[in-house]
Simulated assay, not measured.
Amino acid sequence: MDETRGNSGLERPGQPGTAPALEASLELDSDGSRIAQARHLAAAFLTEVKDRYGIPVVAATVEIAQLVVSELVTNARKYAPGPALLHLRITGPILEVELWDSNPVAPASKAPDPTRVGQHGLEIVAAFARTVTVERTAGGKRITAGVPLTPATA
Rank of each mutant, 00 (worst) to 15 (best):
I143H: 01
R142A: 09
T133S: 13
F128W: 10
L85G: 01
Y53G: 08
R136H: 09
K110L: 13
A43P: 03
T91A: 14
T47F: 13
L41Y: 00
G9S: 04
R34P: 04
R39T: 11
S70L: 08
N75E: 14
R89P: 01
E48P: 08
V69E: 01
T115C: 10
D29G: 07
E23S: 15
D101L: 07
H87C: 01
P107H: 02
V69Q: 00
Q119K: 05
V69D: 02
V125W: 08
V68D: 07
P104W: 08
Q66G: 08
G146K: 07
A42S: 06
T153F: 11
V49E: 06
D2Q: 15
T133W: 03
L67T: 14
P114M: 05
A145P: 13
D31S: 11
D31E: 09
T150Q: 05
S33D: 13
T137H: 12
P93F: 02
E98W: 11
A138R: 15
V134Q: 15
L67A: 12
R12S: 07
D2C: 09
P81R: 03
P114S: 08
I90A: 05
S33E: 14
S109C: 12
G146F: 04
P104R: 10
V49W: 04
V134N: 14
P107S: 06
H120Q: 12
A38F: 06
N103E: 04
A127S: 13
D101C: 09
A108Y: 04
V62P: 05
